[in-house]
Design a binder for these strands. Structure first.
Lengths: 266, 266
DNA sequence: CAGTGGTCTAGACCACTGG
DNA sequence: CAGTGGTCTAGACCACTGC
C-alpha cells in the first residue's frame, strides 16, 4: 500500500537530459503525462482507490509526482476518456464503477423499438444454470486459459415486459470467481458487472463484440419462447479487465422483433 | 469567403465582465474554446477549407480569433476527437475526408472471420439499380423530408472473394444529389462517401445504426445467392452531415457466415 | 467559505516534417 | 532551417460543491 506522501520520490523521469530514453532502435519517446497516466493506472489496478471512491485531487497528485497540475490534468483527461475515472466539478475525480444509476448497463446496446430511453432498466432476470466445469478449447482460447482449466458457466434469460428477449451463456475463469453460485447471483440486485466489482474485485474495463445473425434451434426457441428457426442476433462478447486481460466470454442471443442493437459511428 | 486577416474583429466574446451571459434562467455558460470550436466548425461547414486541405495553423487561428494558442488547441482537440479534422505533427491540421487509405470504410464494421485486417478493402461492387422517385413516408421521416419529396434510391451488392455478402438499399435526398446516376457511381473508384464528398460536396460526419436479425426473402436470396430463410444481419443506418442533418438512409443486409459485425465497447 | 475541477494565458522548449 | 503540432510549466481566475 502506497502512502499519500512518499518517503523518497516517485518521479517518473530521472534523466536530466531530454526526458527521452537514449536508445537508438526504439525512439520510445513517451511524454510525461503518459507516464503519469501509467502511474495512476497502476494505482487503480492494485486497488489503491476502490470503485466509486475519489482519487486524490489534481494538486495532490501533482505534488506526489513532482509535476505541474496541468500535466496531471492531461493524464486524468485520458483516463476519463477511457471511462476508467469520472470527473465531477467541485467534488473530485472518482474511480468509475458499473454500480451507478446513470452508467448502468453501459455494455448493453439493446434498445426497445418504442420509448427510446432506458425504461428497460429493471429487466426480469432468470438464472437458468450455473455450474463449474473444464474449459472447452474455444472458451479457453477466448479467456487465455489452458484447455481443461476450471471455468464457470452461467446461463440466464433476461425478459422485458414478460417477453424473454436475451438468452446468455457466460463463461468466467474459475480462479478469480471462486465461490460464485447461482444463489449469490440471484440474490444480487443490479447489474452483473457491479456484482463482479463488489464481490470479486473484478472490474470490466472494455469489451469487444462479434455480431451475427443465426437461426434459433429448439433449445433457444424454448427458452426464449419463439418459433424454431426465428432469426436471432448472436452477440459474442469478450470483456477485459485492466491490462487487457480477458475475464468473461459472453454469448448472447437477442430477439430483435421489438428491440434492436443500437450503434453509433463516428 | 472569409479573408485570412479580418477587417474589424471576429472575437467570440464582447462583454468585459465575466465572459458569462448575464441571464438568470439559463446559465448558458460556454467556455471560450467551445465558442472557438463553433467558429472553426462554421468555417468547415461553409467549406472555407475543403476535405483533405490544411486548415490554418494554431498560431494563425489564435491571431484571427484573438485568443491564446492553448485555447485554439483545445478547440481543435475536440474537433479531432469528433473526427472532423486530423492532426499531423510537423505538417498541420487537415479537414478529414473519407478518401484516405487509412480511414477508408470508416463506417463499415464488417470483418472477415479469418485474416483480421482490412484485406476486404477492394470489394467487388455491383450497382443493381439507381432511380429517382418520391419518398415513402418512412424514408421521408428518416431523412427529415416531406412524404413525396424527390429521393434517389440506389440498390447495390458488395462481394468479397466472389461471394455476395452485402445487399444495400440507399436512399438519398434528391436536391443535394441532383445529377447522380448509376453510371457515375459505377465510374468512381473508392468509397461511396468519398464520391459524395468530391462530386456533391456532402461530407458524412457521423451515423447511427439499428441492427436486427431477419430472414432472407426470395429477392434477398437471389441477389445474395443464399438459401431463402437464411438469417441475415439487418443494418439500418442514418448518416448525418454537419448540423446533424440526415443525408442518407441505408438499409443493409449482411451475410454473416464468413463475416461478422465488429463492435468495441468502452 | 475552502476545496475541487475547469478555463485561459504566456512563454519555453521538444519532436516531427519538408524544403 | 523554419514552420508545424505536442509537451510542460506557473499562475490567475472562474464555476461548482458542500460545509
Amino acid at each position: 500500500m502506497v502512502s499519500t506522501s512518499l518517503p523518497s520520490h516517485e518521479s517518473p523521469v530521472a534523466d536530466g537530459s531530454a526526458n527521452n530514453v537514449a536508445n537508438s532502435a526504439t525512439p520510445a519517446f513517451s511524454p510525461l503525462y503518459q507516464q503519469i497516466k501509467g502511474l495512476i493506472l497502476n494505482s487503480l489496478r492494485i486497488g489503491e482507490w476502490k470503485p466509486g471512491e475519489a482519487i486524490p485531487s489534481e494538486m495532490d497528485l501533482a505534488g506526489r509526482f513532482k509535476v505541474s497540475q496541468g500535466t496531471v490534468r492531461k493524464a486524468i483527461d485520458e483516463l476519463a476518456a477511457d471511462n476508467l475515472v469520472v470527473r465531477r466539478q467541485g467534488k473530485g475525480t472518482f474511480v468509475a464503477t458499473h454500480a451507478e444509476r446513470q452508467v448502468q448497463y453501459r455494455f448493453l446496446k439493446l434498445m426497445p423499438d418504442s420509448g427510446d430511453l432506458n425504461l428497460k432498466g429493471p429487466a426480469q432476470r432468470h438464472i437458468v444454470d450455473c455450474k463449474r466445469l473444464r474449459a472447452p478449447s474455444d472458451v479457453a482460447r477466448a479467456l487465455a486459459l489452458r484447455p481443461g482449466d476450471a471455468v464457470l458457466q452461467v446461463k440466464r434469460v433476461l425478459s422485458f415486459a414478460d417477453q424473454p428477449t436475451i438468452l446468455e451463456d457466460l463463461w468466467l475463469p474459475g480462479a478469480p470467481f471462486k465461490g460464485l453460485t447461482a444463489d449469490r447471483l440471484r440474490g444480487y440486485e443490479g447489474p452483473m458487472y457491479a456484482f463482479f466489482e463488489t464481490e470479486f474485485g473484478v472490474r470490466m474495463v472494455r469489451a469487444e463484440e462479434k455480431i451475427r445473425a443465426i437461426s434459433a434451434d429448439h433449445v433457444h426457441s424454448q427458452l426464449l419462447k419463439v418459433e424454431p428457426l426465428t432469426p436471432l442476433l448472436s452477440v459474442e462478447r469478450i470483456a477485459f479487465t485492466y491490462h487487457d486481460i480477458p475475464m468473461e466470454l459472453r454469448r448472447g442471443l437477442y430477439v430483435t422483433d421489438t428491440h434492436y442493437y443500437r450503434n453509433e459511428l463516428n
